[in-house]
């Protein structure tokens, strides 16, 4: 179980993470999303004991993330965002080295490792420096999972992987979840969250602005469906049940429904003759962006207010020197008029 209590880690007054509170329970996949520079990687590196939190406590299975980092690492797998391996080593050599660093000597049990190598199609011949970045990422996934850890901390694990590998990786996460693992998954891809996560935390500017389970997030979401009717539908009925719609032509409609009322919409539409029923591919991305937008709007409003105030002040100042301004204004006004007259003359 991962536990963060009031964790603050400042780089500057605006950069870092501030008063973070969240838990990731056993058997749960926690999606950690947010824009770039929000502090996702900082949080994760703090959990891995690479940086020390300024205030608050962060623990994994009850162990402090900084002082007991080595004890935590026994049972933790970490996939970093930017993979940096020992470039001059061969793949097998590297894997053996890490296994030995984990305190396991001799070729005891490489079954899981071999399975992972096969699953992610990692090329085991050759040096690491000659591998593509995607291959390095796959190798780092194998390294993180080969000791069958209880806790997985994944920092954008699928970035740079091809769709097939991404899908394989997500399947693996689902399998691990079924086996009761604790998973923290930081990502930009919302389909990953939709497919694997039980709960989502949205981080923005170092603060957790949302921490909800997927079910309630889904309920908040407004789904849109593109529907083509054979005959003009009974719009009164649709309105009555609280669904919004937009009409494109006599038979084409877009109907909006809250995420938890899709069954009701089905019942209503069952009385109509529906030719085409397509769900518009709306993703969690749009919900998150709504969260972001709210904040952006706030900022914009604040800035507008500031600007208005500034303008007011300027206006007051300018009132003190009215003559100069009016003279300049006159000049400006006169010039274009004159030009126009010149043009007219030329035309004539």
């Amino acid at each position: 179980m991962i536990e963060l209590k009031d964790v603050t880690l400042k780089y500057s007054s605006t950069r870092g993470i501030f008063n973070l509170n969240f838990n990731v329970e056993k058997g749960e996949v926690f999606g950690y999303v947010g824009p770039d520079d929000a502090g996702k990687t900082t949080t994760i590196r703090m959990l891995m004991g690479l940086i020390r939190a300024g205030r608050g406590s962060a623990t994994i299975d009850g162990l402090n993330c900084f002082s007991r980092a080595s004890a935590i690492q026994k049972n933790t797998g970490y996939v970093p965002e930017d993979v940096a391996l020992f470039e001059n080593m061969r793949v097998k050599e590297y894997l053996n080295f890490i296994t030995q660093m984990r305190g396991i000597f001799g070729q005891k049990n490489t079954r899981l490792r071999d399975m992972l190598l096969e699953r992610f199609e990692v090329e085991t011949r050759g040096k690491i420096e000659n591998m593509s970045s995607a291959m390095k990422k796959r190798l780092s996934i194998v390294t993180a999972l080969m000791h069958d850890p209880q806790t997985l901390v994944l920092d954008e694990p699928t970035s740079g992987l091809d769709p097939l590998m991404q899908s394989r990786f997500l399947d693996l996460i689902l399998e691990e979840k079924r086996r009761g693992k604790t998973v923290l998954l930081s990502t930009h891809k919302f389909e990953e969250v939709e497919r694997t996560c039980d709960r989502v935390g949205v981080l923005r500017e170092g603060r957790l602005v949302e921490n909800k389970d997927i079910v309630s997030l889904r309920a908040e979401e407004t789904k849109a469906y593109l529907v083509k009717f054979a005959a003009p539908p009974n719009l009164e009925q649709i309105k009555k049940y609280g669904f919004g719609y937009q009409q494109f032509s006599q038979s084409d409609y877009e109907i909006f429904s809250p995420g938890d009322r899709i069954d009701v919409l089905m019942k209503v539409l069952s009385h109509e003759k529906v030719l085409v029923f397509n769900s518009k591919n709306q993703s969690l991305e749009e919900i998150f962006q709504q969260h972001y937008r709210k904040e952006i709007d706030h900022i914009e409003i604040k800035e507008e207010l500031k600007n208005i105030r500034k303008n007011d002040e300027k206006a007051k100042k300018s009132e003190k020197k009215p003559r100069m301004m009016t003279q300049k204004a006159k000049k400006n006004n006169i010039l274009p008029e004159q030009e126009e007259t010149v043009r007219e003359v030329k035309k004539a």
């Binding site: 690479l50 980092a69 080595s70 020992f86 305190g103």
Partner: peptide
């Protein structure tokens, strides 16, 4: 600097060790 030290620290060995 290269970042590969992270892979050492992400094994069950303390920084001191």
């Amino acid at each position: 600097y290269e970042g590969s030290f992270t892979s050492l620290l992400c094994t069950p060995n303390s920084r001191i060790k």
